[in-house]
Design a protein around this nucleic acid. Structure first.
Lengths: 333, 333
DNA sequence: CTGTTAGCGCTTTCAC
DNA sequence: GTGAAAGCGCTAACAG
């Protein structure tokens, strides 16, 4: 049903090669013929078959993007930025929701390979070791957008960014600062926890295990909601909470509200990610912004270099930025 | 670099066809040879080339999915459900962020066609007329997951669902109920507004234009935040607000908080979508749940039928479900 | 049960 | 400046 080059060639009375060249706007075809063919293609509703083209050019201009799900806010914003950067370079994104065990993880990557992706960007996954061993002789580079143990990684410096958040609370006079982390997204949460601990120690405070709670829920807000109630049951509850991400902080806001507590009067609160929602919360959330557009651009740059076989910087850590809003204040309001 | 069937054939001492059949687990190959080849393929790290296969089978098992962006919560949840349903049928999703004008809209669809998608699912787009005329002789069906003017559409009955929300507020005793809609996502917002108006009229109330506000922001929460402040400036403000979606309601919650007002004591609030976050807000949000898993399954069913050339139900409206939480109460608390 | 042949739609030498 | 021919990796007749 679909019109193919052959059809155009017949109508125009030329060969398929000429059509191919004309549509690629090659100067090897007489301008007149070229325009005529282009016009004809337009008129006949010709749509090139990217599958056939890819087979011969051995290029897919496809980028696998692996993450946990499609619904988490920050990853979604990051993927949108990557999509934007990718289009600019003529690439497209092939999304992959990663499975929850290593075996499924391998199947995920195989699916991407079957689609002939030219590189794989991992937003989040605990199975990167497995990926890399599968990909060992496949010449498809992997770029990690979190952590940094592997060949190519790139992203926000979680540790220093978390310190920024905690120092802000310390500067406001808080002494009992809690941390809420996630065990489902282990690496990023752990790094931010590390920053939290470093900030405390920097000022001579030993992290109190009671003030560090970790949840294993898949809905971050739910985790925050539940975790904060644990903190409130402490004989000496914290006066401030630093959450590993914004959605957790939103849940904390909910949990505190349910307990009749007010932010920031009764409790200060800092999130992480600066997702689009948080400036409009009650109260607006103090948080750490990640340079997602920059990360996306750099990712694309690394991908292009890797594909071209050029040397590239292996690891790169970008600074986060503290954004102070209404959810933080000195203890007691 | 990549190992192809030819390589396996040589190593196994058989022909390419035998390898092809063996890997498809065809009973036409002797069990012994079959297993040997499968084992060999595994060992050699063979990954089938979906591009080459697609070229000859003329099947891509790809489903274009068009929406505004990647970050809106409900569409993200719906797409995840569609992805789930699609995998179960052996399909994969090709995401497409739609452009903001009709010309870009056409380019978006062309890109999907180049990838040889077998059907296009539109989560949201104002350019469907253009899509359909472009696709007229392309044999790629379009399924709309909102509204219903076009050949195939499927989704929540926005009008009756919105009535559910408003009737709940009326039953609580509210008489001045406002509606906040979006002009950026026109169709769904408009339909929900229609349901709102119908519910009022049903009880003999003429919709008050002052109580209907529409924003044109791209961040829904921002729109809600700003819109509610308009409502508060009214000489006679509403006692309840129904928002076209949950993120708008979150912004309203923020705006009310900034104005020192309490939900539900000073204002009742109902959202739409029941996104994963809202049970954990302060207060938990009363909202309308859409049957997204059901929508996803039906979508896949329609897609498969359409591809098979079977007759299908053109339009289908599913009921929404009211979920009462803490954000609604009788006027005055 | 297996091999040979053809060809999907396209690009790209290589001729002329 | 244009055409003929080859072939990307795979599947699917068609033989045998």
């Amino acid at each position: 049903v679909a019109v193919v080059m052959e059809d155009i060639a017949k109508t125009a009375g030329v060969s398929r090669s000429t059509v191919s060249r004309a549509l690629a706007d090659s100067s090897r075809v007489k301008l007149e013929t070229r325009q005529e063919i282009q016009h004809l293609a337009q008129e006949m509703g010709y749509v090139p078959n990217a599958v056939a083209r890819g087979l011969i050019t051995r290029r897919s201009y496809a980028l696998g993007v692996v993450r946990l799900g499609f619904t988490d806010a920050y990853p979604a914003e990051l993927v949108e930025a990557i999509d934007e950067a990718a289009r600019k370079s003529g690439y497209r994104i092939v999304p992959s929701r990663r499975g929850t065990d290593a075996k499924q993880g391998l199947a995920d990557i195989k699916l991407l390979l079957e689609q002939q992706v030219e590189a794989i960007v991992v937003i989040e996954s605990p199975f990167v070791d497995e990926y890399l061993s599968l990909l060992a002789n496949h010449n498809v580079p992997v770029i990690l957008l979190y952590s940094g143990q592997h060949p190519y990684s790139l992203g926000t410096d979680n540790i220093s960014a978390a310190r920024l958040a905690v120092e802000h609370l310390q500067d406001l006079g808080h002494e009992r600062i809690a941390f809420i982390g996630s065990s489902t997204i282990a690496v990023e949460s752990r790094e931010r926890q590390l920053g939290y601990e470093q900030a405390l120690q920097q000022r001579g405070v030993t992290p109190d295990p009671d003030l560090i709670v970790t949840y294993d829920d898949w809905v971050w807000a739910e985790g925050g909601y539940k975790s904060v109630s644990k903190l409130l049951r402490l004989t000496q509850p914290p006066t401030a909470v630093f959450c590993w991400n914004d959605e957790t902080a939103i849940g904390v806001l909910g949990g505190l509200g349910a307990a009749g507590l007010h932010v920031p009067k009764d409790m200060s609160l800092v999130g992480f990610d600066n997702i689009s929602l948080v400036p409009y919360l009650n109260p607006p959330l103090t948080t750490i912004a990640q340079p997602k557009e920059r990360i996306a651009e750099l990712t694309m740059q690394v991908v292009l270099n890797l594909i071209a076989g050029d040397e590239i910087i292996g690891h790169q850590k970008l600074p986060g930025r503290l954004i102070v809003r209404g959810s933080t204040a000195p203890p007691g309001g």
